[in-house]
Every structure is written in structure tokens, then in C-alpha cells.
């Protein structure tokens, strides 16, 4: 398959990254151009909207707001990439549902007509890691690396929404996903298997106890694996695991101290950026152990 040389895409930032974890936006803005991806920022987006609470409130309005965002991208004429698992879940599911149910599509367009917009269903929406795998290829990633993450072991956390339901997301096998393992391996790091790799972080549950029990189970499993850090893709999972470790320590008396690193921050480190350049200093759990391991690593050509 011929891979494209340079690509122009519209980033759909959503809310969590720009408004809560801007270090993730920073990592994306710094790393993607090194892969030949040009980000074309456009005006006109709102929250995707979130696939948990707003959808629980009113699914028709949830679909309408999602369709409006898609219509904005259709007008702009480039495909959308998202970097947030919540955004990709909402936008892909909205596309799927509106294609499946013409009555709902008519209702959504009746509402969009109030602002002279129409959802046609013509724009392509992808997660950035899918674009990297399918449109650019992992060789492009390997070529961009200046400091391989040799010796760093990573417990990958896929989270739920980038994978499931696979018949809508079309990202990977939901039971045996490889997309992030392959990406992390391309950076020179070693992904480690562990028992709770695919367990949900629990954030979407409206209960106080249950989410902490779930994140606790995941950390128990990672601790046994001996991984240097957790590598993840979802900003909502990030809050469960970074701030979540502070809560686990406070409420359950269990301290893990496992750094939680967004996949694109790992990419930035491998591309030779310093920890502050990818915003690692903003995390609650410091990544010193990982940084110590890659000190002095250089690419052998």
C-alpha cells in the first residue's frame, strides 16, 4: 500500500485536552508535524458532546450536537482526526446511528436547519493513532525517532471507547488489540502484558466506590507486571489513573507511584523532546524512573 506523503487534517480537540490536560494537546502539536501531518485548526466546534453524561440526559440532542460538529467539518473540506477516546466514540457512533436510522437523521437535520446546517454523512473521522497506522505506517514513526525508549517497559491501557463496539469503531480486535502495542514497540519501548490490561477505568460509573475499586485492580495488576509506567490514549482514563493514584492513596491507603503517560508524550520523548516539552511536569505522578532509563539513549543508524 502506498502511504501518503503529507496530510492535512482538522484536529477535533474536544474539551478534556484543551481545557483540562493541555499537556496532551502540546504533545500532539509537537509530534504530529514530525510525521508529516499538518493540523489545520478551524473555528466552529463545540463539545463532541460527551458520550456518558450528556448522552444519558438526551440522546437525540446528543446526536444533534455531534452531527453539527460533523457538518462543520464537512463544510471545511478536510477529514477530522481526534485524539480523545470520548470524542471518537461520540462522532463515530453518531455517524453510525444516523446512517442506520433515517428517521433520527431527519429529526437531527430538522434541528440543524434552524442554523442553516445539514449533516450529510460525508466526512471521515479517525483517531490519530488509526491515521498513523493506516495512512502513514509505523515506518514513518520509526524514521522520526531520535531517542529510542530502549529498556522502558510500558503497561498499555487501551480504555474502552477507542475499541468498543468494534463494529462501529473499526479500530482493532476489541479482545486482542495490537494498535497501541505496535506503536509503543515502534518507539523502542517494550509493552508488557498484564491481567487487567483491558479492564475499564470505571470513570463513567456514577458511583463513588466502584471506580476506585476498578482503578485499584488495574494498578495491582500493573505493579505485579513490574512495568515502569502506564501508557494510555484516553484523557478520561488519565484522570482515573494520575489523580486516581492520589485518591487511592488517600482513601484506600495504597500507594503505587506508577507514572501515567499519554502515548503522544511517549512519542515526543522518543522524538528527542525533553519531559517539559511534552508537559510531563504537569502530572501528579512524576516520570523520573522512565526519564532515567532513556538518559543517554541514542539512535543507532
Amino acid at each position: 500500500m502506498t502511504k501518503k506523503n503529507n496530510m492535512k487534517v482538522i484536529p477535533f480537540w474536544g474539551c478534556m485536552m484543551p481545557l483540562k490536560y493541555p499537556q496532551m494537546e502540546l504533545a500532539i502539536r509537537k509530534t504530529l508535524p514530525n510525521l508529516g501531518i499538518e493540523l489545520v485548526d478551524i473555528e466552529g466546534f463545540t463539545c463532541c458532546p460527551d458520550p456518558i453524561y450528556f448522552k444519558a440526559r438526551d440522546k437525540v440532542k446528543w446526536l444533534t450536537i455531534a452531527a453539527r460538529n460533523l457538518a462543520v467539518a464537512e463544510e471545511a473540506g478536510h477529514d477530522i482526526i481526534t485524539m480523545c477516546s470520548g470524542c471518537i466514540s461520540t462522532l463515530k457512533e453518531a455517524q453510525h446511528t444516523l446512517a442506520e436510522d433515517p428517521d433520527l437523521k431527519a429529526e437531527v437535520n430538522r434541528r440543524l436547519k434552524r442554523i442553516n446546517k445539514e449533516y450529510r454523512g460525508e466526512v471521515s473521522v479517525k483517531h490519530a493513532v488509526v491515521m498513523i497506522r493506516d495512512d502513514l505506517g509505523l515506518d514513518r514513526v520509526r524514521e522520526s525517532i531520535k531517542r529510542p525508549l530502549e529498556g522502558v517497559t510500558v503497561a498499555i491501557h487501551y480504555g474502552c471507547h477507542i475499541l468498543k463496539p468494534s463494529q462501529i469503531m473499526h479500530v482493532d480486535d476489541a479482545d486482542y488489540p495490537a494498535i497501541l502495542d505496535d506503536l509503543v514497540s515502534a518507539l523502542g519501548a517494550t509493552p508488557l502484558e498484564h491481567h487487567e490490561k483491558l479492564l475499564c477505568c470505571g470513570k463513567g460509573c456514577m458511583d463513588d466506590e466502584l471506580p476506585l475499586d476498578m482503578t485499584g485492580a488495574i494498578f495491582e495488576s500493573i505493579e505485579k507486571s513490574g512495568a515502569d509506567c502506564m501508557g494510555l490514549i484516553c484523557p478520561t482514563c488519565f484522570s482515573s489513573f494520575d489523580m486516581g493514584q492520589i485518591l487511592l492513596s488517600r482513601k484506600k491507603g495504597k500507594t503505587y507511584n506508577i507514572p501515567v503517560i499519554y502515548i503522544f508524550q511517549l512519542l515526543g520523548l522518543a522524538q528527542g523532546m525533553g519531559p517539559e516539552e511534552v508537559g510531563l511536569h504537569t502530572h501528579r505522578i512524576k516520570a523520573d524512573k522512565v526519564l532515567e532509563k532513556i538518559k543517554g539513549s541514542v539512535k543507532v543508524t
Partner: peptide, 11 residues
């Protein structure tokens, strides 16, 4: 309201 919204059941 205890559902974690993980989509495993859908899968």
C-alpha cells in the same frame, strides 16, 4: 446508574 459505559456488553 452503576453502568460504567464500557460497551463490553454491546461487543
Amino acid at each position: 446508574w452503576l453502568c460504567t459505559n464500557c460497551y463490553s456488553c454491546y461487543e
